[in-house]
Structure formats: C-alpha cells, structure tokens
Design a protein around this nucleic acid. Structure first.
Lengths: 184, 184
DNA sequence: AAGATCAATTGAACATCGTCCAATAATTTA
DNA sequence: TAAATTATTGGACGATGTTCAATTGATCTT
C-alpha cells in the first residue's frame, strides 16, 4: 500500500520531484515511519522501482498473450515502448535513480530485471534456428539494449530533436536484421 | 571558467550530488551571482551538459583522426564507450537531467547533439552503397540509439547484472549487421 | 575631482528536502 | 494489571534551490 501509493506519486510527479515527505503525507503517516520501514530514501526508491518493473513485466506478458504467433516479437517491442510511454515518469525513474557507488541492488531487484529479460529470451529463441538457440540469451541482451536505446531517445526527445519519425519501426528493423543475421 | 569548473564538479560528484552552492564556493562567487548569470539551475545544468557534449564530440573526432580507414566505425563505437566510461558522471548527467515538461532545449544545445550525430552520419554514409547513401541519416539515428543502449546498460550495471561480458562487441555486431542489411 | 548613473555582486531569508532520534502511543507478553 | 516490546511521531539539523533588497564596484558626466 505504501509502495502502490509511492509508485502513484512517482508516476505523477517524476523522479526529480518525488519526495518522501509528500509520500508520507499521502499515506497518512509521518516521515519517520517511512524511514523506519525502508531505512533510507534509496531503499524506498528501489522498492518503488521494483513495483514499476513488476508492472512492466506484467504488461509485456499480457500483451504477448494476445499476440499472433507470427508477430510476437513486434508485439514485444511495441509493448516495451507502450509501457514506457504510458508510464513515462515511473519508467524513466528506473534509470534516473542510481544506488550510491559501491552499493549494488539486492537480489530481489535483480530478479525483477531478469524476469523481463527472460521474457525476451524466450521470444528470441523462438525465432532462431534450433541449432542457434544457445545464442538467444546473448542476443536478447543486445537487442534489449538496442530497443532500450530507441525507447529512451523517444522519451527524452532526442529523436524528436533529430527528426526521427518512426522510432518503433527503426527498433523493429534492427531487431529483425540481427535475427536474420544470426539465422543465416 | 564557471562552466569548466561546473563540469569538473559534475564529473566528480555526479548529477545527484551536484549543487549550485558548492559550485559558487569553488569559483569564489556567491550563489546569487550564479543565478544572475544563468537564471536558474536548469539553465546552468544545460550549459554544463553542453560542455560535456562538446568534449564528447571532440573526443570522437580526435579518435577518428587516428583511425585506419577500414576500422573507422569500430573506432567510433569504441570512442563512444570510452568517453562515457572515462567521464561516467558527466556523461550520465546528459541523460539524468531533464528540462521541465513543455520546456525544450535551446537551439545551441540541439546543435551540439546534432554535431555528434553528424559525425556518425558521415561514417555510416562512407560504408553504405553509393545508391543507398540517402539512408545514412535515418540509419545513423537508429544505430546511435542502439549503441547508446549498449553503452547505457554497461554504465548502469544492467549488463553486469545480466552477465554480459562483451557489450562493445555486441554493439559493433549489431551495427555491422544493420549496415550489411542496408547494403544487401 | 566629484557626483551621478549603471552594472555586478552579495548574502540573508524562505520553503523544502533527506535524515536522525528521543519521546510518545499502541500493542503484546507475562 | 504491570511490564516489555513495538510502532509512530514530529521537532531538530544541515543542506538545497530560489529570490531580492541592499551593497559594492565601475563607468560616465559635468
């Protein structure tokens, strides 16, 4: 309940204007309680970003459920963009927020990231030649990065600045080429 | 001088811990002066990120000057990564910082981004079939996004978390495939 | 040289933030 | 019921972005 409200506030105002005090006000507790529960703002942010990751994974899964077999990859990429655009602030907060140097994210958080990654691995593997399926994880990582770049440049207006009219199409083209190259 | 010192502070402490008051202290002026000169923290950040963009472009150009003709693209991608890694904090600040909604970056800033983009266009065009050279701008935008994604996941530890051992190699593979596909 | 005009610079004041922690309230245990 | 444990509070602290009347410094006029 703290987390859903926190996620809500983050989605509204964005990472830069997110405030623990404001969240405390919204859930009807005092600031101190938030700190007793989470220990620090960093841990709270981590937990809220975890909610976003869960929602993102869930969105991808739902969209893929209704995807025609021949269009699953396109659906996955579209869903990636859609969630980011529909949840601009929460999505960008995943990348805006960084743990202090040296501190690394707990396993629970890493698993949420891996869960999204795993969805993509399956889809990539499905379109690879059977004897090349072992390349799916590495290819999925790389294509996830490519799609992320396209999505990020869409959301932070870099593409708009450069006059790119079809970021989604470009992302899909790059993914298709890579898979084709791997299957050749 | 304000800007170089500001860029220095940003490179040291990172965007999250950057402070106008601290910068004022470093340059021997008061906070108010900083605001008189730049109007707001946003404008100051924009100007400092502009310094980073200039440095980045300059780094790319320098590295390309010494690049063997057959390896120019690989050099460009490597240089992209190198600058980001060598200037973690300043580089990530380009993406951490965002203007308030509705406000867009001034032309001077857009031109700095385009300058980096233009460097890549030239290199892409050089490896495209002459009759496909018109695709260079769009392809450059897309490949820049792909490389950015790989670089970003390298720096924010997503790749480390996923066990990716060779992000640069992956980025280069994706770029090569796209160019090959375009030339086919 | 003195006075007047303009520009540059200051730093205190304000609201807000993350963080801490002794004090208080609520609940559980004995 | 009394004691012990847990949950919650909210004021205090230092630091932040931002503003702006007051001050200093420079330039020009006469």
């Amino acid at each position: 309940m703290i987390l859903t409200e926190g996620h809500g506030q983050l989605a509204e105002v964005g990472y830069a204007r997110f405030s623990a005090r404001e969240l405390a006000k919204r859930i009807g507790y005092s600031v101190g309680t938030l700190y007793n529960v989470f220990g620090s703002l960093d841990q709270l942010m981590l937990a809220i970003n975890g909610v976003t990751l869960d929602g993102w994974r869930s969105y991808l899964q739902t969209r893929l459920l209704a995807a025609p077999p021949e269009d699953r990859l396109k659906t996955a990429i579209s869903a990636y963009f859609e969630y980011a655009i529909l949840n601009r602030h929460a999505w960008t907060a995943i990348y805006d927020f960084r743990l202090p140097e040296g501190v690394e994210a707990p396993d629970s958080y890493a698993r949420k990231v891996e869960a999204i990654f795993d969805i993509v691995i399956v889809e990539i593997a499905a379109v690879l030649r059977p004897d090349r399926r072992d390349r799916a994880p590495a290819l999925a990582r790389s294509l996830l990065a490519s799609v992320h770049g396209h999505c990020f440049f869409t959301i932070n207006a870099t593409f708009a600045l450069l006059g790119e009219a079809d970021p989604l199409g470009a992302a899909y083209a790059r993914v298709s080429e890579a898979i084709e190259a791997c299957n050749r």
